[in-house]
Amino acid sequence: MTAKRKFNIGDRVSVVDKTTLFHHRTQKFTRGQSGVVTEYRPEWVIPEDEAFDPAGNGRKEPFYIVRFKQDDLWPDYTGHHIDTLETEFSESWLEPATSKGKR
């Protein structure tokens, strides 16, 4: 819990759109999308390592809850403009928001 966090609550971040051979829990619908950090979550072993070593010896990273606007995630969103979605990422899946969101 001592590692310094790269992002703060309120920061605008983008989800990295990368391929990986390893097990991960980063949904495709969030890749390349931008949102705002709303909560810190404890540091724990990332899924990429945990899948191969459930004993918890893998690399640890801080986690974050990120809030997206539904309008940004789905071009044909059928709800209302105020609707949002929150989900969680390990730090290496996030980067400072790029000015243009990728669709």
Partner: peptide, 13 residues
């Protein structure tokens, strides 16, 4: 005018 917020519990929370 009610914000609908979906929580996708994809990690350990």
């Amino acid at each position: 005018d009610v914000e609908l917020r979906v929580h996708d519990s994809n990690q350990k929370s």
